[in-house]
């Protein structure tokens, strides 16, 4: 059985490696987002070329993050993939429905502040995390 334990440990190691890679890409993406957002004001005095490079860098790292996430999901087993799929369905559906309703509140002036994309992105992320938590608990 030691061979099986070794295989199990290799599977766990692969999962951990994928998760660490995604964490690194996500951190880099967040940092590049901050650079693209605040760089023009605080670092390079609105220079168009550097602002363009900042946004291009953010996009390139974002693509790397998407691919790392795909690799992580493809390496999950079928139950974990089902949990992720349900969470993505909830996040996309709720994000779309509530996001458009939120935007409409702003459009018809029912709220005094502007509906902003970062708030929607944070909401989608929270729904996704809650859905993964719920799915994992349900199958425990």
């Amino acid at each position: 059985m030691s061979q099986k334990s070794l295989e199990s440990s290799q599977w766990t190691t692969r999962q951990n490696r994928n998760a660490r890679a995604l964490a690194r890409w996500t951190t880099a993406w967040v940092l590049s987002l901050a650079l693209a957002q605040f760089g023009p004001r605080f670092l390079w005095d609105e220079a168009t070329l550097l602002s363009s490079i900042g946004i291009a860098l953010n996009l390139a790292i974002g693509i790397g993050m998407i691919l790392a996430n795909r690799r992580l999901i493809m390496d999950l087993d079928e139950m974990q993939r089902q949990v992720q799929l349900e969470a993505m369905a909830f996040a996309l559906g709720i994000g779309l429905v509530f996001g458009l309703a939120y935007a409409m509140l702003d459009t018809v002036n029912l709220i005094s502040f502007d509906a902003r994309i970062p708030e929607l992105a944070a909401f989608i992320a929270l729904v996704f995390m809650a859905s993964v938590f719920r799915g994992t608990r349900r199958l425990k």
Partner: peptide, 20 residues
């Protein structure tokens, strides 16, 4: 006399999946 982790390793899934 296998653990859930042993079985999980043998069929290439997580221990949580074997448990479920």
């Amino acid at each position: 006399d296998w653990t859930q982790a042993d079985l999980a390793g043998a069929v290439d899934v997580s221990r949580q999946t074997i448990n479920a």
